[in-house]
Computed example of a mutant assay.
Amino acid sequence: MRKIITLILLIFISINSYSQSDKELILESFDNYKNAILTDKGKLAADFVDSRTMNYYSTVLDKVKMADSLEIDTMGIIDKLTVLTMRHRVSKKDLLSFNGKDLFVYAIDNGMVGKNSVVNAELGDVVTNGDFSKAEFVVNGQKTPFFFHFYRENKIWKVDITHLFLLGTIAFKKMVEDSGETENDFITNILEVLTGKKPSENIWKPII
C-alpha cells in the first residue's frame, strides 16, 4: 500500500511540474490574440478577449444604432471614432443584425482594430492577483508605463482591450492637437483617408 501511495504522489508531482504557470498561460493567450489581430481573424481573436471587451462592443453597437449627434459629441474620442467608423464602413443591414460579438469579429476581419497596438508589442513582467493579472507593455524591446490587463474567465486568461483605450486616447488627442483641426473634423478626415470615401452627414444620425 505504501508503494502505491508513493507511486501516486510521484505521478501527481510529475503532472504538476509540467503544468503551465499563470504567466506562461497569459503570454500564450496574448500571442494568440496578437496573431489573430495581425491576420484579421475575428472569431479567433474573440476567444482571447474578456467579457469587458465584449460588453464594450455591445454598448458601442447600441450607440451606433441610437445615438444622435448631440450624444456623440459628448463621447470620448475613442468611443466617438468607433461609432462613426462603424456607421461609415458597415452597412445598416449588417449593423441591425449584429450583436456585440458580431461587431467585434467584423471589426477584426476587416482590419478596423489597429494592428499598430500589437505589432511591436510584447509582455514584460506579469503580476497576478487571483483572477486578475497585469503585464508590462513592452514596445520594440522598451518598457512603457502602460500595462495589458488580463482576467481569468472560465479558467482561461483573456485580455481586456478596453484598458488600452487610455493609451489610444492620449495618442489621438496628441494627433488632433498637432493637426490644428477640431476633433470632429480630424475624425471625419481620418475616415476619408482610410476608406477613400468622404463621410456623409448620416454618420451623425441614428440608424433606427
Rank of each mutant, 00 (worst) to 15 (best):
V105L: 11
F150N: 11
V49T: 12
K41R: 15
K92S: 06
L25G: 08
P206T: 01
M75R: 09
N154W: 12
S19Y: 04
P199F: 05
H163S: 14
G168V: 03
T74G: 07
E181Y: 09
G130H: 00
G124K: 00
S51I: 06
N32K: 15
L191A: 02
E24K: 06
I156L: 14
V105I: 15
D31E: 15
L25E: 14
M86Y: 05
S14F: 06
P206C: 08
E71C: 01
R89S: 13
L7E: 10
M54D: 07
N120I: 02
S58F: 01
H88G: 02
L96K: 14
T39H: 15
G111Q: 03
A121F: 01
K115E: 10
S133I: 00
D50C: 15
I8N: 07
F98M: 14
L10Q: 03
V113Y: 02
V90I: 15
S14T: 14
F137T: 03
L38Q: 04
N32M: 14
E71F: 04
H149T: 12
F48G: 02
S51F: 04
F137R: 11
D125Y: 00
S51W: 01
K80G: 03
N184S: 15
E177V: 12
K143H: 05
S91W: 03
E181F: 06
P206L: 09
I170F: 12
D31W: 09
T169V: 07
D79E: 13
L103N: 01
D160L: 07
R2Q: 12
I72Y: 03
N129P: 00
K93H: 05
A36R: 10
L164P: 04
W157E: 08
I156Y: 10
L167A: 13
D62N: 07
H88A: 07
L164M: 14
Y33M: 06
G196C: 03
K80P: 08
L167T: 13
I108Q: 09
N16E: 11
F186R: 04
G76E: 10
T188N: 06
T85P: 02
A36G: 06
L191I: 01
D73E: 12
S69G: 07
K43F: 09
N154G: 03
S21P: 10
Y151A: 10
N55P: 03
K205F: 04
L38A: 07
I161S: 11
N184H: 09
N55G: 12
D22L: 05
T128P: 00
F172H: 12
V83T: 00
L25Y: 03
S21Y: 02
N116Q: 08
P199C: 04
L27S: 15
H163P: 00
P145K: 02
I26F: 01
R2F: 13
F12R: 09
F12H: 09
I207D: 12
L166Y: 11
E71Y: 02
I203V: 07
G42W: 04
N202T: 05
D94Q: 14
